[in-house]
Every structure is written in C-alpha cells, then in structure tokens.
C-alpha cells in the first residue's frame, strides 16, 4: 500500500486524487472535511487548528498500518490543514483507492473516524458574537 501523510497550511483534494489514481484501481473514495460557518446555531468566523506534529504524524502512520492489516487498499492519503481556516476551507482530506469500491468506502470511513479520535490536533472556534481575544 502506498501512503501519503501530510500536515501543512493548505491542502487540496487535487493533490490527494493525483496520488491515489492508478490503473489497477477501480474504486476511489475521497472524503473532504470543510469548515462550517456555524456551530450549534452560533455563527463561526474562522477556526484555528493547532497540532503536536511529530505525534500527529506518528498516530496517522498507525492508522495507515491498521488499514493495511484490515483491507486490500492500494493507495491511502491523509492530509490535514493547520493554522487559520475560514468557512469553506478544506480542513482534512482522506483518499483511498482499491480494486473495487466496497472496501474503499469502509477504509475511508475508518480512517476519518479514527483520526478524529486519536490524532493530536485541536480546533479552536472563533465566533461572530464574541470579542477577539
């Protein structure tokens, strides 16, 4: 399985898609998590993502190892953005390619669910109705 794991300020779906496309795969699943403009009815102006980068990369590699054990996935991409992000910006991209689509959906969902539980990245929300600190 080929793996691309990256944490940086700006991420795109295109770079994930470019990495996973291969003639041996017929199923490519891409999940993009974007910044919502509200949380519990409060308007969100922007987010700030903070990261313990060496451990985050290590935990992402552990998720990749689990995927490799569970499914016959050929390509896996995990991208996470850090820093200030605004509504509509892409915060996370998971991309998976396999010969057929079924396991690609399963693996993609497993990766994003596990990432949200274990990878040391923190989101701070800034709201329209509060004074900047």
């Amino acid at each position: 399985m080929d793996v691309l794991i990256t944490i940086k300020e700006k991420i795109t779906v295109e770079e994930a898609l470019a990495f996973i496309q291969t003639p041996t795969c017929g199923g490519e699943v891409i999940f993009a998590g974007t910044v919502r403009n509200h949380t519990h009815k409060r308007a969100v102006t922007h987010l700030f993502y903070e990261c313990y980068e060496p451990m985050a990369l290590s935990e992402m590699r552990k998720i990749a190892d689990q995927v490799k054990e569970k499914w016959a996935i050929e390509k896996l991409v995990m991208l996470h953005a850090i820093g200030a992000l605004y509504p509509g910006d892409i915060a996370v991209v998971i991309a998976v390619a396999s010969a057929h689509r079924g396991i690609a959906f399963d693996a993609c969902e497993y990766v994003i669910d596990t990432l949200k539980e274990t990878v040391p990245i923190w989101k701070k929300e800034f709201f329209a109705d509060e004074q900047p600190v």
Binding site: G33, Y49, C51, M55, H80, K116, I121, W122
Partner: peptide, 26 residues
C-alpha cells in the same frame, strides 16, 4: 515520547512528555 501512555508508565527527564486534552481534528 509521542505515544499515549497509561497511568502507570514511568518517565525520566530524557523523555518527551506532552499533555493531550481531548482532540478535535478533522
């Protein structure tokens, strides 16, 4: 050292220790 540790794990001043509050990536 960049891995989640259990309560009984010991460390020295040569180890890298971090406090990890609930994560909220994604």
């Amino acid at each position: 050292n960049r891995s989640y540790a259990s309560d009984d794990q010991e460390f020295t001043d040569r180890d890298e220790i971090a406090v990890i509050p609930p994560v909220s990536g994604g």
